[in-house]
Design a binder for these strands. Structure first.
Lengths: 188, 188
DNA sequence: GTCTATAATGTGATAGAC
DNA sequence: GTCTATCACATTATAGAC
């Protein structure tokens, strides 16, 4: 049902997602999205009421994609330590792209966090699925420190490593920091 | 010499610096700078040839400010471990502002790193003074690992802690992570 | 040197033909 | 449903009066 319409909506969200990631939200114009999606500029207002609405759809799509990823990790391993390793492996696999364009969540959050921008939802909610999932893994591990602080610590180091790797344009920075993070986890 | 002219140039750079930090470079218009500095919009082109030139001046000003800060830390302590502590103390003192607006270097680097932006200089050079200085401190400490990797590790954790603290709007995240970083340094 | 008026361009958004 | 033409506005930048 609604095949064509939903189809084009999805195409728009898909292209916008990629462009927002690589160029930033504000820097990406309807002309850019039109070029990528081969749709006339004026037509976007048939599918979405505003540019902000496209952003909201992109954010929603990312959130569901994250949920699917977390569910997959939950299924593929029963040991919490191994599950966290899935997270690190994902970052390692994406090291090249992360080094080129930064973290898709972090860069968007930073742009929308600037004064004058109107985020579609509190920006930290982009990280809440990861934070909640990591917290549950640390709880299951029964490690010494508070689980929620351990979870935030992992996010801090992953985010920092991704950003410095991006700034210096060197994937090896992220890869090396992921090794250190893995060692730290083993020492718990 | 050139009192008035250099004075206004400095006022422009000063206001632009603050606005670029709080709102982002692209989001800040000449109208914004004009309001803050009480100068007519059109006059900026007497003092600077373009908006990019203002950005370049802001970046240059930040770099010299960083150098002065590093020199001060170098003077105020002879023990390298204590010098690194000066760095951490600076972050702790600024935790409120960092939590509100993010890292002035990191957010600018991220914005200028997006495709289509023309940075006044390779963005990683904003971090090079800190990285070089930290590397020299770790060399003086003669710790186990490679000094340059230790330096990058500190930058990674400081940057990540600042960004997550900013995203969640909670200074305590940065403060807590600075405690952990301090403990890690003590364990070297 | 200082200011105002305005050009040139690109943006998000709308109206209306087909 | 799809497309084109165009609006209203903000932006950087320029020209020229005083």
């Amino acid at each position: 049902m609604n095949g064509k319409l939903e189809d084009k909506r999805a195409r728009i969200v898909d292209s916008a997602d990629r462009l927002f990631y690589q160029q930033g939200y504000r820097q990406t114009s309807f002309t850019d999205i039109a070029r990528e999606t081969r749709l006339p500029r004026g037509n976007f207002y048939y599918y979405f009421p505003s540019k902000d609405a496209i952003l909201a759809a992109v954010v929603a799509a990312r959130l569901t994609a994250i949920q699917h990823m977390l569910n997959e990790w939950e299924r593929s391993a029963s040991d919490p330590r191994q599950r966290i390793d899935r997270f690190l492996q994902m970052l390692r696999t994406a090291a090249g792209e992360l080094s080129r364009f930064g973290c898709p969540l972090g860069t968007l959050a930073q742009e929308l966090g600037k004064a004058g921008a109107a985020p579609p939802l509190p920006i930290y909610q982009l990280f809440e699925p990861f934070r909640g999932w990591l917290t549950r893994q640390f709880e299951a591990m029964g490690s010494a420190g508070a689980a929620d602080e351990q979870a935030m610590h992992v996010l801090v180091r992953a985010q920092g490593a991704t950003q410095m790797s991006h700034i210096y344009g060197r994937p090896s920075i992220l890869e090396h920091e992921l090794d250190r993070l893995s060692e730290w986890l083993d020492g718990l």
